[in-house]
Computed example of a mutant assay.
Amino acid sequence: MSEGGVRERIVTAALGLLVEGGPDAVSTRAVSAAAGVQAPTIYRLFGDKQGLLDVVASEGFRRYLADKASREPTDDPVQDLRDGWDAHIEMGLAQPALYRLMYERAVDGGSTSPAAAAAVDVLAGHVARVARAGRLRVPVERAVGLVHAAGRGTVLTLVDAPADRREPLLSATARDAVIAAITTDAPPAERPGPVPAALALAEAVPDLEVLSDAERLLLGEWLARIASGD
Rank of each mutant, 00 (worst) to 15 (best):
E3S: 07
G5V: 04
G5P: 08
G5T: 07
R7D: 00
R9C: 05
T12I: 02
L15P: 00
G16E: 02
V19I: 14
G21F: 04
G21I: 04
G22F: 08
G22A: 04
V26E: 03
A30C: 03
A35G: 09
A35N: 04
Q38K: 13
Q38T: 07
Q38H: 08
A39L: 07
P40G: 06
P40H: 03
P40W: 00
I42F: 05
Y43M: 02
R44Q: 05
F46G: 07
F46M: 03
F46T: 00
G47T: 02
G47I: 01
D48I: 01
L53Y: 06
S58A: 15
G60Q: 10
R62C: 02
R63Y: 08
R63E: 06
R63P: 05
Y64V: 02
L65M: 14
D67K: 02
K68M: 14
A69I: 07
S70A: 15
E72G: 00
P73G: 02
T74F: 13
P77S: 08
V78M: 07
D80T: 13
L81M: 12
W85M: 07
D86R: 15
A87N: 02
H88D: 03
I89D: 03
I89K: 08
E90F: 06
E90M: 10
G92Y: 04
A94Q: 13
A97H: 03
R100K: 10
L101D: 09
Y103M: 06
E104T: 12
R105P: 01
A106V: 01
A106R: 12
V107T: 11
G110N: 07
G110P: 05
T112A: 15
S113A: 14
A115F: 04
A117D: 11
V122I: 11
A124E: 13
G125E: 04
G125S: 08
V127S: 06
R129M: 08
A131T: 11
R132W: 09
R135P: 09
P139I: 03
E141P: 09
A143M: 11
L146Q: 12
L146E: 01
R152G: 09
T154R: 01
V155N: 02
T157Q: 07
T157D: 01
D160L: 00
A161D: 10
A161Y: 00
A163G: 03
A163K: 12
D164N: 12
D164H: 14
R166T: 01
E167R: 13
P168V: 08
L170P: 09
L170C: 03
T173G: 06
T173C: 11
T173S: 12
A174Q: 02
R175C: 12
D176I: 05
I182H: 06
T183R: 13
T184N: 11
D185G: 15
P188A: 12
G193M: 08
V195N: 11
A197D: 15
A197P: 12
L199P: 06
L199K: 12
L199Y: 13
E203D: 10
A204P: 04
D207M: 05
E209T: 12
S212V: 05
S212F: 00
E215D: 15
E215I: 02
L217Q: 14
L219R: 12
E221N: 13
W222L: 15
W222D: 15
L223H: 10
A224G: 10
I226M: 10
I226K: 06
A227I: 08
G229Q: 14
D230Y: 09
